[in-house]
Nucleic acid binder design. Structure first.
Lengths: 334, 334
DNA sequence: CTGAAAGCGCTAACAC
DNA sequence: GTGTTAGCGCTTTCAG
């Protein structure tokens, strides 16, 4: 049988409200009484009912991560997995729970973010995997629901964002590529619908400007973060120009970089000698690719951790930290 | 403002209890009345409060996945990520939530599984990442909490398991290796504490027996599923014997297989010519390793999906399917 | 077929 | 400091 607050009250010889106050750390409770209640509670193995608590408070301390793009049958990407890990490392030992929901664009249309939170008794959410144009991004602006976007910029009174400073990071890797690689560059670009693409492109432009690389020495291949597309596009490019044009491939994602490496090798060139390749993200897979190519590690677990921290900050203290950048790091190649 | 059942009742001109019955699909409600209520509910955008529902029912339909081994700071493994995906694909559009908790061995000692479920209002859990000897495995036996273990065999009235038939699968890959590879075998083994190891070893033995491979033609390297250990061990082995002994490496995990491939190449031998290597798991990474080595795909997303389905079956219908094997598939190499 | 009313476990006024 | 009491939104007897 479930031990209720009433049982504790009876056994401790006090009223339910006293128990409630004692257990919730109010200071208008006699210390002896509190101790007696605490002891009795743990002796009886009392566990407060979250449901009753939520119902009574109407303010729920449950938080959730809403993940967009989980629907497909493809394996879970490392990014989401690591965000989850990060969230989890925050709540570790904190007597909190974190729920997980997949939100398709479909769901976003059917159920407003506010309704979603009400329905599931959520006091705040972490949003990830959202794409520019997704409905919830707009809704966040006018809602008073504590939200934290991971890798997506959110606006609103109660909305914060955890991002990589993509402009800075991409500038860094671009500079690195220019220094270590060849002067004729190829930017292997992601799709413009993604917010990060815009920033990474900005970083790229700043770097080439700083290094005075002229437009003639830059080719841009739009590969939309699609590995296969990157493969075919780069293959065609190298097939056409060989080493006569761009020889430094600066890729907006590690996966596209890996595809690029594959092309190079299949065409019997050598990475590091004939061509230079950089990635971006810092995925695990890169450790298994030879040669090791330079990349930017986004520190995703940290992103998850910080996201959770910010969210709790907003929920509890009502303060909104706005945008927080998580430090990235440049991983050297060989 | 939150729309409650009371609002719907008032607007529809009926009582709360009628609304409740109508919405919950009881058949003692006049069809016209039901329709009116349904319409009004959706017009008002009524969303039942889970908390109130749980409180009233005392039976909570919340389920959670309890993940062991999430604590470390290492990136989330593909396995867990894909299980999550599978779970999610089941609840997609089903108006359910799934909570996620990390459970260290520490937590398992402090808080019994039963208390855990009560505390978080869980009516059932998916358990994954557990190791032989973990406390919750024992507890499941004597509890009446609906549980489903993914890749861990659970016993108990309300406990089911979703597994790969490791005996069969490992027999399959072993036979394949014997046929395509060389007759002298090396088993790159995982740690015995893992349940799967025992089964995989059984499968191995059945296969070698069937093919009448004698003990002298088999070497066993205990590498505990540790990639580094596999690397050093195999390297030493090949360094010592070259091609004079085992030339077919049958690995209990893809990661160990990849380490093996690395050794072979670094010692200037060729996989597929000098040595033959097989893996087990079907991880993504394998797609990026050349040459493509044969492996067993465990279909982890399906495992997650089925796990969730079983759990709901146990919770709702009280029937326990026991152990369910998810079909695996042999992935050919090149 | 429908409504009234009790109660799930908890919190928060408001008394004392 | 502590107790009394009125809900939170919902389900479920029990009457009618």
């Amino acid at each position: 049988m479930l031990i209720s607050i009433r049982d504790v009250a009876k056994e401790a010889g006090v009223s339910v409200s006293t128990v409630s106050r004692a257990l919730n750390g109010y200071d208008d409770v006699n210390e002896d009484t509190r101790k007696r209640i605490m002891d009795m509670a743990s002796k009886l193995g009392y566990r407060p009912s979250q449901s009753a608590r939520n119902l009574s408070l109407k303010k729920k301390e449950n938080v959730a991560i809403l993940i967009s793009g989980l629907g497909s049958n493809s394996p879970m990407d490392e990014f989401t997995g690591n965000v989850l890990k990060g969230l989890n490392s925050y709540i570790q030992g904190k007597d909190m729970m974190i729920a997980m929901y997949g939100i398709s664009s479909e769901i976003q249309r059917q159920l407003s973010l506010k309704d979603f939170c009400e329905q599931y008794s959520l006091s705040g959410v972490i949003l990830t995997g959202l794409k520019l144009g997704d409905k919830y991004i707009e809704e966040v602006k006018n809602n008073e629901i504590p939200c934290v976007g991971i890798d997506i910029r959110l606006e609103g009174n109660m909305a914060a964002s955890v991002l990589t400073d993509d402009v800075k990071a991409f500038k860094e890797i671009t500079l690195y590529a220019i220094e270590k690689g060849y002067k004729k560059l190829v930017l292997v670009k992601g799709k413009d619908e993604a917010e990060v693409t815009i920033d990474r492109y900005k970083g790229f432009k700043t770097a080439v400007k700083e290094k005075s690389i002229s437009k003639d020495n830059i080719d841009i291949l739009d590969c939309k973060y699609d590995e296969e597309l990157a493969y075919t596009t780069v293959r065609e490019y190298i097939g056409k120009y060989g080493k006569s044009r761009g020889r430094t491939f600066i890729c907006m994602s590690d996966l596209m970089a890996i595809a690029t490496v594959r092309c190079i090798e299949e065409l019997s060139y050598r990475v590091g000698e004939d061509f230079f390749v950089t990635g971006f993200d810092g995925i695990q897979l890169l450790n298994y690719i030879k040669p090791k190519i330079p990349t930017i590690d986004q520190n995703i677990i940290k992103k998850g951790y910080e996201g959770m921290r910010l969210l709790m900050d907003i929920i509890k203290n009502g303060k909104n930290p706005g945008t927080v950048y998580i430090e990235h790091s440049l991983i050297n190649g060989e």
